[in-house]
């Protein structure tokens, strides 16, 4: 698996309270990506048109690939290996925002969720490229490049479906109502934010959220979609999830936890 493999003279090690705090950030990012990738992959073979099926499968692979990168960085900090992390934790140990655990829904929900997530990832990665911790800054730069396509893809879909037909508008608006509060949950500070901000690892989540809103609002408006007034759904970054995560992980971990073998 592609791991960031830090250069020998580069210090990966972090002093302890900060190590734990950085770990919490990576955990949030990795869990977000792996679960979103899983949800996207549920479209493979079932998308509205063949070309869209193929594109969604690539996005699913990219998200899972990013998760592996973040899990590998966590492993450098002393956490278990990526497969252990993805397959052998229970729902309360996951630190993803609830947005990514919600069922795949219709194509409108998938597109809206992906759009909100892609832009959140964009502002996060751009901020992390300036992180004081070099391995994180380098990994962020790498992932950011791959996000370019995702941004174009989800923006193009939102701009088209938002006001194409009455039905597409209705579905997109409903999807936005459902996804928006959970998307705000992407900016719920993971434990240890103060330490991270002080050490220059990341800017405060509130700042990222503001940058994100500045990016997504004009596009949603251009797509004739109304942005709901809603309180964020928090809890994910502290292990509090919807019932959908239980079902998702039961699917996800079924074979790995079957007890039939160690290696697959």
């Amino acid at each position: 698996m592609a791991s960031p493999s830090p250069k020998p003279n580069e210090t990966v090690a972090l002093p302890d309270p900060l190590r734990e705090a950085v770990g919490q950030l990576l955990l949030a990012m990795a869990d977000d990506e792996v679960l979103l990738g899983h949800r996207d992959s549920e479209w493979v073979g079932h998308a509205p048109i063949l070309e869209a099926d193929i594109a969604m499968a690539s996005i699913a692979q990219d998200e899972i690939g990013h998760a592996v990168l973040w899990y590998s960085l966590l492993q450098e900090l002393g956490w278990p290996d990526p497969d252990r992390m993805a397959y052998f934790r229970d729902p309360p140990e996951f630190r993803n925002a609830t947005l990514v655990e919600l069922p795949k829904g219709d194509w409108a929900f998938t597109i809206v969720r992906q759009f909100l997530f892609d832009f959140a990832e964009k502002v996060r990665l751009e901020a992390l490229m300036a992180s004081a911790w070099t391995p994180l800054a380098e990994a962020a730069a790498k992932v950011r490049r791959e996000e370019t396509y995702h941004l174009m893809h989800s923006r193009a879909w939102v701009l088209r479906l938002g006001d194409a037909t009455e039905e597409s508008h209705r579905r997109m608006q409903a999807a936005l109502e459902q996804a928006w509060p959970h998307a705000l949950g992407l900016f719920e500070p993971a434990p240890g934010e103060i330490l991270r901000v002080e050490a220059g690892i990341q800017p405060p989540e509130a700042e990222l959220r503001a940058r994100w809103e500045a990016e997504v609002r004009p596009i949603l408006e251009a797509a004739s979609l109304r942005i709901p007034e809603a309180e964020p759904v928090y809890g994910g970054r502290h292990g509090r999830h919807t019932e959908h995560l239980d079902a998702l992980l039961a699917d996800f971990q079924m074979v790995a936890r079957s007890g039939l073998g160690e290696t697959w």
């Binding site: 048109i49 063949l50 070309e51 869209a52 193929i54 594109a55 499968a57 690539s58 396509y149 174009m152 893809h153 193009a156 088209r160």
Partner: peptide, 20 residues
């Protein structure tokens, strides 16, 4: 070739079909 609704989408969809 790809089936697409418009040129921009054609480009986005072609990328995944032909540059995987």
């Amino acid at each position: 070739a790809v089936h697409a609704p418009d040129p921009e989408m054609a480009l986005l969809l072609a990328k995944e079909q032909f540059v995987r």
